[in-house]
């Protein structure tokens, strides 16, 4: 899948996306309406994650791994487990994670080379692996730990909302695979899209809102507690991130 990995190069975007598209030919049905709409107006891609429907099965993590051949030990998508309470009053919640495609992305403002940029046409934040020098500044600046260094290229990498699929009108791979339909993807600028309706009518939250990043991944029923909340007397909380770094940062 080398071709898809470089599909976001600014230099010859069109040619490479063509190659990438050929590789994903066997994917789900194209919502024809969305494809026609793409050509006409600016798109604002967003995802709604209904944490109540997530069973922590990691199908999204696996689908994403397969889609991009993400090397071992690094993740574009992962699921966190939040355990809390003291027996017998306990709960376990799941928090699917990915890049938030922030509207005010700090990763973009610190990138010294312009390798990371936010696409004007659809708001997706991408990394150009032909420009990135691997300085890791963006990894420190992202409040969501969404980025990693791809050990094959030595450059920064992260979820790109499956750019090569969505530009073809396909759903992102993780959304496509989610058995509980916990992940819903669409265009916020289209008032009739499912995401626009959910964001308008549900009590959605975003992660670390105080960072001012204006995330475009919205959660329904997410458990926002973490280990710091154990300051409440008697409260036990354990967060398992399923990443080499077992703590959130």
């Amino acid at each position: 899948m080398k071709a898809t990995a470089t599909a976001i190069s600014r230099r010859d975007l069109v040619a490479k996306i063509g190659k990438g598209a050929a590789l994903v030919a066997a994917a789900t049905a194209v919502p024809g309406k969305a494809k026609a709409a793409l050509a006409q107006r600016a798109v604002h891609y967003a995802m709604v994650i209904d944490a109540r429907k997530c069973t922590g099965c990691h199908a999204c993590s696996v689908a994403c791994k397969a889609e991009f051949e993400v090397p071992l030990g690094v993740h574009r998508s992962w699921v966190e487990y939040v355990e809390k309470g003291t027996y017998p009053n306990v709960s376990r919640n799941f928090l699917p994670r990915l890049c938030n495609q922030c509207s005010e992305p700090p990763c973009v403002s610190v990138c010294p080379t312009g390798a990371t940029y936010k696409r004007k046409e659809d708001g997706i934040v991408v990394v150009d692996p032909d420009i990135c020098i691997g300085c890791k500044y963006c990894m420190l600046a992202c409040p969501y730990d969404a980025r990693f260094i791809n050990p094959n290229t030595g450059t920064a990498d992260k979820c790109d909302f499956c750019l090569h699929r969505v530009t073809e009108g396909l759903e992102p791979s993780c959304v496509n695979t989610c058995q509980g339909r916990a992940r819903i993807f669409g265009d916020l600028n289209d008032p009739n899209s499912e995401v626009a309706k959910l964001v308008a009518t549900e009590p959605v939250t975003v992660l670390r809102q105080e960072m001012g990043t204006k995330p475009n991944v919205f959660y329904i029923g997410a458990d926002h507690s973490d280990e710091n909340d154990t300051r409440v007397p008697g409260q036990y909380i354990r967060v398992d991130t399923h990443r080499p770094i077992l703590e959130r940062r």
Binding site: G134, G154, T155, A156
Partner: peptide, 29 residues
Amino acid sequence: LETFQTAVAHGDISLLFRWINLFLTINLS
């Protein structure tokens, strides 16, 4: 720089001087 480390690890000369990209642009970073 990870590109430099990768260049050394994989013997990939093309990544060795990737840091030049710092001086092909200037932005507010």
